[in-house]
Amino acid sequence: MKTIIDIANLKKDYHVGEVTVHALRGVDLKINEGEFVAIMGASGSGKSTMLNIIGCLDRPTDGTYLLDNVNVAGMSKNERAAIRNLKIGFVFQSYNLLSRTSALENVELPLMYNRSVSSRERREKAIAALEAVGLADRMNHMPNQLSGGQQQRVAIARSLVNDPVVILADEATGNLDTRTSYEIMSLFQELNNKGKTIVFVTHEPDIAKCMTRSVVFRDGSIIREEDVKNRLNAAEVLRTLPVEQD
């Protein structure tokens, strides 16, 4: 099986004044194609730093990081921007949609920064991504005309549009109620079943149970790494949840 993320002895230090903070102390992590990995841990455990480095937003102090067999650890700011554009999709806790910009245009955004995609191709791919998240009928809605769950779906469509090798979700259900959370998880499971590799940062154990593997961080190191037993099917959980009265 193809290895998408191959991290070895990864270290990240921050210098705050004269104090050096070791955010990551030599982490080894391999993620294969088709995995759905939960990254868990308390605040300050290093999981956000890990996600930033995996997402090429930040660069490690030391260690190697191969993303899709390309060493990205030593890349410059612009090279990392290009990598993010082509190989990574982000889903944030607070959606981060552009306000007063239609769902369709929001989804088109990553392709705007890829000059090899024509405007027609861009539109077609964005429509396909919105269809994949079940929002084909809301394409021209503005973010403020959509519910939280729908906004997160637009964000997921945006993360899919460039056909990335990995989708990185940072507390993607953190702002949502339980029911909507499972709806979103159901969508992620659906994408995973189609072969998408997903790395999902969360601190909710129930949510983590929807994934295939969990990695737990503490003090900058991985303290536990295990396959999820009794994996939850989010769609089934949804059926058992009481439907809210309107």
Partner: peptide, 16 residues
Amino acid sequence: TREIGLRMSVGGRSID
């Protein structure tokens, strides 16, 4: 600022 952060995270370079 957040918009700028988002644009950068989806691949916007400094020059963009």
